[in-house]
């Protein structure tokens, strides 16, 4: 068996740069000096383990996990997919966390300023620890689009936020999932921070007609790829090189 080495270097041209003036908040929050390149040490190759025992049975059911006498209102969805690495292997034991606005596009948050109504039965958060093959799934309602303070009248396309915790701190990733066919994806300044159209398309979940639940839920499939790890075929050095 080959040992595994460091993670493949991040393709920074595939990710959004820090400074993206069309997304105004980035202007004062973007580091201006070059990042210091650091080959992986044990501090980056390691990461915590999240046991399945930490999760509750409703943690991946946003329709009922904040229920106060009813179910969340909206288009019922199952979102599912796999967490893979760049080598195409499914990653087990990955903590996947998700949060979103309600069906009207309103977040349950003290800073929210949009007039759409709160849903008393919708909190907007969930989590899952991936199965042995890297699979995850959760039940939710389709979030609404909403306006946000950037240019005078900018709107976000419907989206779900994801935080993904792989096997090493080097794999840490936060991203957003969009919905197939939404024309608002292509006019969003936050989406447009990503320079390559193919990279944006990687964030658009496909309507998964086969996995819809009759008389219950639509389904969307969203795979997430974390950094892959180098094979150290001929090296016999301690990990961390």
């Amino acid at each position: 068996m080959t040992q595994e080495g460091s993670y493949y270097q991040r393709d920074r041209a595939w990710h959004p740069p820090a400074f993206t003036p069309q997304y105004k908040t980035s202007v004062l929050r973007s580091p201006q000096r070059p990042l210091l390149s650091l080959e992986n040490t044990l501090s980056e190759l390691t990461g915590p383990v999240f046991g399945h025992g930490r999760l509750g049975p409703l943690d991946n059911d946003l329709i009922t996990n904040y229920a106060h006498g009813g179910e969340a209102i909206g288009q019922r969805l199952v979102v599912h997919g796999r967490v893979l690495d760049e080598n195409g292997r499914g990653l087990p034991g990955v903590l996947v966390e998700f949060w979103q606005a309600n069906a009207g596009g309103r977040y349950r948050h003290h800073k929210e300023g949009y007039r759409a109504a709160l849903d008393p039965n919708f909190g907007g958060c969930g989590r899952y620890i991936t199965d042995p093959d890297g699979g995850y799934h959760f039940r939710t309602i389709k979030p609404g689009a909403y306006p946000w303070p950037n240019r005078v009248n900018d709107w976000r396309p419907a989206h779900i936020h994801f935080s993904v915790f792989g096997h090493a701190f080097a794999q840490r990733l936060v991203t957003q999932m969009y919905f197939e066919g939404d024309p608002m994806i292509w006019q969003c300044p936050i989406v447009a921070t990503i320079p390559d159209r193919r990279a944006i398309e990687q964030l658009i979940a496909a309507l998964d007609r086969n996995n819809t639940t009759p008389m219950d839920s639509l389904a969307y499939k969203f795979d997430i790829v974390l950094r892959g790890r180098r094979s150290t075929f001929f090296e016999n050095r301690p990990e961390g090189n």
């Binding site: 760049e86 998700f98 949060w99 977040y107 929210e112 909190g123 969930g126 935080s163 790829v225």
Partner: peptide
């Protein structure tokens, strides 16, 4: 046959809903 890492997007102003509700 190497996949591309999923691109990052900002955590946004409401990251606490998901991480520290």
């Amino acid at each position: 046959d190497i996949l591309k890492e999923t691109p990052s997007q900002t955590a946004g102003p409401y990251v606490h809903i998901g991480a520290t509700p």
